[in-house]
Write a protein that binds this DNA or RNA. Structure first.
Length: 426
RNA sequence: GCGGUCGUAGUGUAGUGGCCUAACACAGCGCUCUGUGGCAGCGUUAACGGCAGUUCGAAUCUGCUCGACCGCCCCA
């Protein structure tokens, strides 16, 4: 016991007790994607690092500092996926999916990796689901993606869902806006907090996000991107909002919302759950439109839109909030207790009969004491215990004990499976 | 990547230089027990995150390291 093994920083186990939550979240994604006619795709966890770095922008933190990348023996620079989108786009291009009827709607779910400082709700390995629509520039797609993300969270029992949307323009209008914004802040540079003076150089859009009071006042007068969108972006954004209105989604316009990845264009959004104080736990889902990514990765000019859903975060929040989920499927309702050698032998056979009838039955054949077995059954929370002892074995019946009421009755051996089958049905 | 707080059996805590051969509760395992669980009795397993240092003596002090969490950066 000298060297104690522990999991790596930011990695964690999904223990048996939490698997029901994991399953539940997956099911919700599966259902929603099914109704919206999305098709499942599995892409590799490993890709050429280029797949991720080309579109995200070399300056993005996700790629620059947080990617798990390494060289293979053959010399290729490869990386663990930090997100799904680039891999899915690569697959779309590689398999000529532009020859399929457009748009192509895809979804995926699995582990992603980012090497940043772990914190609560923020891991180096985390599960994400990704919904992507490729080959459609219509604003209705943006609306649908947001709707689906909202549906999933609502289905999982979240009540105070906040949807923030913004448009960050495209290659035509964004550079121009950045310049205007930078100029505005430069003129007030001395009144900004220290962090913001630094942000101004590195990422002027981030200044808009500062919580310092003095910066808040300055940003109130700052130019907003939605006033500086080019005609196409403006029209698109207007339509997106109209769709959201039509869908009656509770969205809020957040002119300060920006994204860390360069490939986003036009619509961006973030969905989170707020607590009583209006403080959010961190984005549970976020995404937007990426009309330039497919071309950037070597495909045809193809508009696209998608969302990344934080499965791990959602799970953790559900566990923390003790969201009730139906665990019926996981639970076993029947426990088979045995007493005495002869009965034990016959019990094994009875257990097989239950299995053949597809009825899950718990047992602890290794135990001899009836008291111990009932104790175990009680801790498992089963509804019925079948007691099979010497007397029963001789006279060919079994004792059924209702664990809630303590009432027992005798059932002829050849009717046991049949009767129990009827019992667990309701 | 930077700054901070913390780390004692499976879980929750007590112990803060010698009284620690590290305590308590619950959980686990075994027995009483081959006939009855949801407050039985008895027994038992099991921890000072790791490594070095200071000291006559370290769970307790120092350094490094690993991990968790918080803030920054950033993000699912």
């Amino acid at each position: 016991m000298k060297t104690k093994l522990q999991s790596l920083a930011g990695m964690h186990d999904i223990l048996p007790k939490d698997q029901a939550y994991f399953k539940r979240v997956q099911k919700s994604v599966e259902n929603t994607t099914h109704y919206y006619n999305f098709q499942k795709i599995d892409v590799p966890i490993l890709e050429l690092a280029e797949v991720f770095s080309k579109g995200a922008g070399a300056t993005s933190d996700v790629v620059e500092k947080e990617m798990y990348s390494f060289r293979t023996k053959g010399g290729d620079l490869i990386a663990l996926r930090p997100e799904f989108t680039p891999g899915i786009v690569r697959s779309y291009i590689e398999h000529g999916m532009y020859n399929l009827p457009q748009p192509v709607k895809l979804w995926a779910l699995g582990p992603c990796f980012r090497h940043d400082r772990p914190q609560k709700g923020r891991y180096r390995q985390f599960f994400q689901a990704s919904l992507e629509v490729l080959g459609d520039k219509s604003a209705s797609i943006d609306g649908q993606i947001i709707q689906m993300s909202y549906d999933i969270l609502k289905d999982l029992g979240f009540k105070n869902i906040s949807i923030e949307v913004n448009s960050i323009g495209d290659a035509e209008c964004r550079p121009y806006f950045k310049k205007i914004l930078t100029n505005y802040f430069k003129s007030k540079k001395s009144s900004l907090c220290q962090d913001c003076q630094r942000r101004l150089k590195e990422n002027p859009l981030r200044v808009l996000d500062c919580k310092e009071e003095k910066c808040q006042r300055i940003k109130a007068g700052a130019p907003q991107i939605i006033d500086h969108l080019c005609e196409a972006c403006h029209a698109h954004f207007k339509q997106v909002l109209e769709f959201l209105d039509e869908l009656e989604l509770p969205y809020v316009l957040n002119p300060y919302l920006v994204r860390g990845l360069d490939y986003y264009t036009k619509t961006v959004f973030e969905i989170s759950e707020k607590n009583e104080l209006g403080v959010s736990y961190g984005a549970l889902a976020s995404g937007g439109r990426y009309d330039s990514l497919v071309k950037l990765l070597g495909g045809r000019d193809t508009p696209a839109c998608g969302v990344g859903i934080g499965i791990s975060r959602i799970m953790e929040l559900m566990i923390e909030k003790e969201v009730k989920i139906d665990k019926k499927e996981e639970k076993t309702d029947i426990f088979l207790a045995q007493l005495g050698q002869a009965a034990k032998r016959k019990s094994l056979k009875l257990f097989e009969e239950f299995r053949a009838a597809k009825i899950p039955v718990a047992e602890s054949f290794s135990k001899d004491s009836l008291r111990t077995q009932l104790n175990t059954a009680n801790k498992m929370g089963v509804k019925w215990v079948l007691i099979f002892g010497q007397k029963e074995a001789l006279e060919n019946f079994i004792t059924l004990r209702d664990m809630e009421t303590g009432i027992q009755k005798e059932i002829p051996m050849d009717k046991v499976v049949e009767e129990m089958k009827a019992k667990i049905k309701n």
